[in-house]
Write a protein that binds this DNA or RNA. Structure first.
Lengths: 157, 157
DNA sequence: CACCTAAGTTTACTTTCCCATACCCAGCGA
DNA sequence: TCGCTGGGTATGGGAAAGTAAACTTAGGTG
């Protein structure tokens, strides 16, 4: 009989991204970096994340090139590492802002959002937005997904 | 001594969004809905997700109002439920597209992406993009986070 | 009326992840 | 050289997730 043909899951950019940032504390660590934290103790204190997981997540983010380590030195203390975001890490901002925006809309505190995102300089609110290369603003329901060059089907057993 | 003041984590839209879509299969289920799947068997077959978890995730997504159930009826079969995305679910598209876009850029198959997203109608590629209310295109490093109306500090023990 | 099918539920077992806590290590300053 | 401090590592228990397979259910078909 005909083999059943299905989309091959092994080649999915969403799944691959989630392999990196899909674990519990990872995106929250990135959020804190984005908000200005850089030290192990900052993350631990603000997030309340267990130290071993925090160390594991930071190590992974550095290995992936999303964070990088630098050293800092407080007067009268030895130099210690701190974590800064890389351009590759900055490119996660649209995804994280997408989560932020959805949470602000559907799960916000009655008082409003806890954090506002502004355009440095002009000061206006920023948001994420879907657009096409023709410059059109695209409504979510007008996004169409079609097979790309690496689209593969899989053969079910 | 002074209590230490920290950002209060309980009011974070990112964390709240992740409470809903942060579990392993959830976003992949949404992706499949977005790509056109709607039936229990579709998800099981394409994702390879265990049935019990799939049922639990679908139930949760319906409870959260991200998916809704409708019934379908194949000729000569009884009616069965199918899952369709709601407007609240569609509003997750920018976040999911952010993940897709990052994966396409940094973890793509050598051949290219498996899926292309196009503007229905004009056919041009779509992407997510940060902009401000003045209409400016905003570079990621020019996004500034400032305390909003519900910003709260917490007092460390 | 027995059988088939899709959509689950249930059960039992294994594996992985999460959390808390204790411990370790490398300077610096007293 | 002793303790203090920040940045980790090690460990052990418990919760959750993954795996596999049997069971259930409701209606349509032969």
């Amino acid at each position: 009989m005909d083999p059943r043909l299905d989309r091959d899951m092994s080649n999915c950019s969403i799944a691959r991204t989630l392999e990196v940032v899909g674990e519990k504390w990872t995106i929250l660590i990135l959020r804190e970096v984005w908000y200005g934290s850089s030290r192990f103790g900052d993350f631990e204190r603000v997030l309340g994340c267990p130290r071993n997981l925090l160390a594991a997540r930071l190590r992974m983010l550095v290995e992936e090139g999303i964070l990088a380590t630098e050293t800092y030195k407080e007067p009268g203390a030895r130099s210690r590492p701190k974590y800064v975001i890389t351009p590759k890490g900055m490119d996660l901002v649209p995804a994280v802002m997408g989560l932020l925006q959805w949470g602000d809309r559907y799960r916000a505190d009655p008082e409003g959002p806890a954090v506002l995102t502004r355009h440095r300089g002009c000061g206006a609110h920023v948001n994420v937005h879907v657009r096409c290369e023709q410059g059109h603003s695209v409504r979510e329901e007008d996004v169409e997904s079609v097979p790309g060059p690496a689209f593969r089907m899989k053969v079910a057993e």
